[in-house]
Design a protein around this nucleic acid. Structure first.
Lengths: 206, 206
DNA sequence: GTCTATAAAGGGATAGAC
DNA sequence: GTCTATCCCTTTATAGAC
């Protein structure tokens, strides 16, 4: 078998796996893990049922791989926010916008999926810990941005961890609210950051 | 059969049904609808598997009944907030506290369950509309409280519907964050209402 | 009203042909 | 690498005895 041939085969493998992952993200994110059937995933990815098991050991295998990849991407987004913007306020504004952007396919399902994963109880202890660890790391990064914002005077005073929880809870709550189409609103980063931003003119002892 | 006897039988029916509903609320709320087995419910309620079908037509039947009842209870809580407190700010503070109170069993699972129901897609159109209708009614009630708070000058200006969505999203996001035990915090109504409360001293043109 | 046993269906996973 | 057919376990739902 020529090296050229191997390359081609590897390319096909990558494409098929990617198709399944993309389908899975949307389905897991909307229906949840338990309610999503293998056949739902393969149908959406336009593959046969059997082929699934050529690429993933099991439904849970795919699930865990997808979650961990998404967490890595999200952490990468935090990196990007810190690289591309100077002020902590601008960093969180940009992050918030990115999180809510991409009409469905992009950011939203991915974040919803992470939330569900953190909340689910069907994973083994080890896997769960790996996921929680990555998530915690992300929260800590937000926390540090908030601390720098407090020092610069852009953000209100208070326990940074608690403020991070309030901020992320609002972001995630809005994602869920917009995911179901009941009272969808255009999320604005400025409005999200209302609860974190310092109001000039009061207690300005900087 | 004496009337006394019928009463007794009815009482047993009510108790059994209630036990199943309570168990279902906790399980649906933590594991989700699809992942919850009938046997999970009957085990928790300490009943036999078969008895379930003596009280409910199906798993979905129980689910729908529970959701609709919970929505009625939540709307009743909004009524209570308006009866027992005068100022819109106090009303929302009280509601927020009540929602996050009751260490697990009480409020929290119930609200999480509602959120999941609004977001799920396995229900028939009619049932879904009934649920969404009740939920919308609740959101409108919050909206009206916000409008009154804007008139009284307690709340910031802006589209009341949008403000209601931000408020409820934060409340729900915090419920979810606290439900998984990753970074649990003591939710304070005052902090939740930071994003809604007017800051004295700026634009005070009342 | 309550239980155990069983039927019926659904869906995850595998086998084997192409 | 891909597909169809099938296995088999899990879970919903029913039957029938007590």
């Amino acid at each position: 078998m020529s090296p050229r041939k191997n390359e081609k085969i590897q390319e096909i493998r990558d494409i098929r796996q990617h198709e399944l992952k993309e389908a899975a993200i949307e389905l897991f994110g909307t229906k949840g893990y338990a309610a999503t059937k293998i056949s739902d995933i393969t149908n959406k990815a336009e593959q046969s049922h059997g082929l699934f098991y050529h690429y993933f050991k099991s439904k849970e295998d795919l699930y865990v791989k997808v979650i961990l990849e998404l967490l890595t991407v999200i952490i990468g987004t935090v990196d990007q926010a810190e690289e591309e913007h100077d002020s902590p306020l601008k960093q969180l504004e940009w992050l918030t916008e990115v999180t809510h952007s991409g009409s469905l396919r992009d950011g939203v399902h991915r974040h919803i999926l992470i939330m569900q994963a953190l909340y689910s109880d069907h994973l083994t202890q080890e896997v769960k810990e790996e996921i929680v660890g990555k998530y915690r790391f992300m929260v800590e990064r937000i926390e540090h941005i908030i601390i720098r914002g407090q020092i610069s005077g852009e953000f209100i005073e208070g326990d940074a961890e608690e403020l991070a929880v309030y901020h992320l809870s609002l972001v995630h709550g809005l994602l869920l609210t917009n995911a179901r189409k009941i009272s969808p609103i255009k999320v604005s980063a400025e409005k999200v950051l209302r609860q974190l931003k310092r109001h000039p003119g009061q207690g300005d002892d900087q």
